[in-house]
Computed example of a mutant assay.
Amino acid sequence: MRILLSAVTLVALASPALAGPAGDMAKARIDAVAKGDVATVTGEYADGASLHWIGGPLDGMYAGPEKLKTVWTKFTTAQGPQTATVAAVSEAVNPKGATVTADVTFAGKNTVKVRYVMVYRDGKLADEIWQVNPGATY
């Protein structure tokens, strides 16, 4: 009985439903990117937020509402309709903020595998890293 209870506890702890608020925000963000919902994606940024896009044709650092909107519009337009598959997600939280790291495959006109790091402060996206990871096996 103890072994069965331990197994049930492990499954419950591994459940995505137990993700914290930042994990929930990250999942919603990934879904919005996949849907091409640029207004939602850009509306989540805190003042002064930045995006570090590492690799691929959009490589660069983006900051400010217009530059962030432009880069996400370029990505979603180039991809067309797409899906997102999350292979792994990790959330770290303390009273000052939260960081969510996710390995995601966006499949549209192209398959784009990324290591996606999102930094949240006060419920807003403060910074993010979009690391194109073409050699990933997820």
Rank of each mutant, 00 (worst) to 15 (best):
F75V: 09
A84T: 00
A98M: 02
A34R: 03
P21L: 02
V8I: 10
T83F: 04
V86Y: 00
A34E: 10
A46S: 12
W53R: 06
Q131Y: 09
I129A: 13
P134M: 10
P21F: 02
L51I: 15
T73V: 01
Y45E: 07
V41W: 11
T76E: 01
Y138P: 03
P81Q: 06
T111S: 02
V89S: 02
A107G: 07
V114C: 00
V100Y: 06
K69G: 15
T40V: 14
L68Y: 09
K96T: 02
M1H: 13
A12Y: 06
G80W: 11
A7V: 01
V93T: 05
G64R: 15
D127V: 04
K124Y: 08
T9N: 07
A12K: 10
A19I: 07
T73A: 05
V33E: 00
G20M: 11
E128I: 05
T42M: 12
V117N: 13
L5Q: 12
V8M: 14
A28H: 09
I54W: 05
G135A: 12
G20P: 05
P95K: 12
Y62P: 02
V117Q: 06
S6H: 08
M61T: 12
M61I: 11
V89H: 04
T99S: 10
A88T: 08
H52D: 10
A14E: 09
Y138R: 09
A78W: 02
A7C: 06
T9V: 15
T42W: 09
V38I: 14
D122G: 13
M25V: 03
A12I: 06
K109Q: 13
T76Q: 03
T105N: 04
K67F: 07
V119Y: 14
D103R: 11
G20K: 11
T40F: 09
V104R: 09
I54E: 10
V11C: 15
T83P: 00
T76A: 03
P81F: 00
A136R: 01
P65V: 12
F106N: 00
A34V: 06
V112E: 02
A7Q: 10
T101K: 03
M25T: 05
A87G: 11
K96G: 00
D31H: 08
L4H: 09
P134S: 08
T70W: 12
A39I: 07
E91R: 04
A78V: 04
L51E: 13
Y138D: 10
D47S: 13
W130F: 11
G108W: 00
A84P: 07
V8Q: 06
R121H: 07
Y62G: 03
G20V: 08
L13F: 13
M118S: 06
E91S: 14
T137S: 14
Q79S: 10
L10A: 14
A46Q: 01
A98K: 05
G60A: 08
A78H: 01
A87V: 00
A63M: 13
T105M: 03
Y45F: 15
A14Q: 09
V112N: 00
V93P: 03
A28W: 02
D47Y: 03
L51H: 14
D127A: 12
E66R: 03
L13Q: 14
Q82V: 01
K27P: 01
